[in-house]
Amino acid sequence: MTAAQRRWLLLAPAVAILACVAAGPLLVMLVYSFLEPGEFGGVRPAFSLDAWFSVLFARDMFDPEIVEPNIAHLAILWRSVSLALQTTLVCIVLGFPTAWFIATRPRGTRELWLFLVTIPFWTNLLVRTFAIQEVIRNRGLVNTLLMQAGVIDEPIQMLYTDFAVLVGMAYVFLPLMVLPLYAAMERVDRRLLEAARDLYASRWRMFREVVLPLSRPGLVAGSVLVFIPAIGAWVTPRLLGGGRNLMLGNLIELQFGQGRNWPLGAALSMTLLALVLVALLVYLRAVDPDTRRRDHG
């Protein structure tokens, strides 16, 4: 057996699993998105582009000839992209100093800090989200403390807002930003920092021209790891958004449930997939040195 053959043989189980549980269902969804909805869910084997049409458009209720943008879907789409970007941003702001802190601890103690970062993963996502609910609800921890301290008279409505969804997602996805950032920062040669300091670089300049460029691969990887699950998030917006602030994942679920419009659900899933692919393309461009060199001439 040649090395190539052996490689393929070893890959075979993974490829088979991916074909069965990823590619197969995806293909089914793709086909569904071009069919007509069945009575009470399911699909009818009749070709139709209606599902794809209604991802972004709608027909006027009085005059079906008039085509208008689907304001509901556009609003939900926008919220998903916007909240996913905000989540990524919050994770960068919180994760960057954290990762740097860990990377600059003495060898041997870093593992302990990393270990602490992974502690939230021990508890189920659902339980953690319910816990956040308890903290930010009207008679929850934060409001009670603020009221007792006399800072506010009336509880601040935090639960069931976009803010709550943002807090929940940033909390859940933060480790996904810290870990790749740490991996990149750990490899930064400390002597470069000393050199910069010797040459009288200000702290800001040191950060901008040494730390940031060298942490870039981790930053990009972390952003992708946060953005992709954030844009498809389901549990967090469902529990903290109060069902009022739908994100794409919730909209898709609605179509497979009460909406009884599986083709639309499938078309929306494909739209989500396309958004993820765009994010990955941006990622590839950002890390591929060839592309970067071309960009810089």
Binding site: I71, A72, Q258, G259, N261
Partner: peptide, 14 residues
Amino acid sequence: VHALYMRIWTEVLR
């Protein structure tokens, strides 16, 4: 009719 109602409902949830 269900599809029409669903559309109005989705607008409520937006």
